[in-house]
Write a protein that binds this DNA or RNA. Structure first.
Lengths: 196, 196
DNA sequence: TTTTTGTTAGACAAAAATGTCTAAATAAAA
DNA sequence: TTTTATTTAGACATTTTTGTCTAACAAAAA
């Protein structure tokens, strides 16, 4: 609600987003958020009144963004394969930056996410699913319920990044090596989804 | 530490596991756990002394189990394809029951999971990766770093179940319909991983 | 029956986290 | 310079959660 825009409000939101969505600290306290942002905890209340409202704000914006990204990608005027490649690139980049966002959304969906239904438009998704079905008819991709195709796409995109800390240990690879693996994912995923 | 085994200790652990891993209530309080188990909160301290130790106990057991399941599946004396199908079946069943377990492990890995490295044996995984590489040579599956193959497998298995609450809304399907989709996953995943 | 063990109940202390208030300091705008 | 908005500092109340202690109770074991 402040009149001047000094960037502090945004700074707090960005910091909270970073802690929650990038670092996976799902129960960061107001103190931790304020400290990480380098502001006084009082300032956090000055801008957001309560922790809940801060969380709600970034939750909403995250949903908004996600919905936007989904729409932009899926409504793009491109052939299906190029469009899919673009989805992979866009969402992979986002997952690298904020691997825990979806996890957060899902585990907090019960307490925060009732309005979620309203926010996400399902039309672009439906249109994309329709295109996928057409591609199956043409024999470019395996025949299946298009919903499976989409779940496969998002699974292959997202899960390795969510599991990164575990995988580094399980596969005994360094952070550098793991990044190299992730950089290969675009090609791998395309290879999984489309027939040669 | 109790002498008689009345099952209460196990009941508390099972309940905590259910709340955390099945229902996704990642910050369930001692009171909530006690209530859900139908025991007095004091009893929780009687058996585990502190919340942290209760969490640590189920965390450890979960890691233990996961490691065991992984080993059993991957060391099984079976041809690669059958073995993989078995992995899918076993892990899918587990994901249906406890979709948030891996999420929990990953987000708590920083605070609890140092000993994780010790617990998980990477030999069986390495052996499986080796078999996968051999299958690629034979042309049964696409050529790629076997680590990608394994990440693909687990991604396709796990992610849809983690995202279930979101997907039900995004795809506008009922719980029943979603279950039907999940029941189809085994075939879908096999189709994705192996060449026809 | 007596004893031990498990379990509950309630009161309470301690800690952690949130939220409120006031006063002062800072900095930009008028 | 005066004013206004932003930000900090500190004290403090409130709430939530955890942890401790003691007494009582129930039930199985000795």
């Amino acid at each position: 609600m402040p009149l001047k825009n000094t960037g502090t409000e945004q700074l707090i939101k960005d910091t909270a987003r970073r802690l929650l969505f990038a670092e996976g600290k799902l129960h960061a306290t107001t103190q931790e958020i304020a400290d990480a942002a380098g502001v006084n905890r009082t300032g956090l209340h000055y801008y957001f009144r309560s922790r809940d409202q801060l969380i709600a704000a970034i939750f909403d914006e995250a949903m908004q963004e996600l919905s936007q990204r989904l729409n932009d990608c899926m409504m793009a005027d491109q052939p299906f394969k190029a469009k899919t490649k673009h989805i992979i690139r866009v969402f992979l980049r986002h997952m690298v930056a904020f691997p825990y966002q979806e996890t957060f959304l899902v585990t907090e969906i019960n307490t925060l996410g009732k309005k979620l239904i309203a926010n996400i438009k399902s039309d672009p998704v439906k249109a994309y699913l329709h295109e996928a079905a057409a591609e199956m008819e043409k024999g470019h991709i395996q025949k299946m319920d298009p919903v499976h195709f989409l779940m496969n796409l998002f699974s292959l995109l997202s899960y390795p990044l969510i599991m990164a800390p575990l995988y580094k240990k399980l596969f005994q690879v360094s952070a550098k090596e793991f990044n190299a693996l992730i950089a290969e994912r675009e090609g791998i995923i395309m290879g999984m989804l489309f027939k040669k």
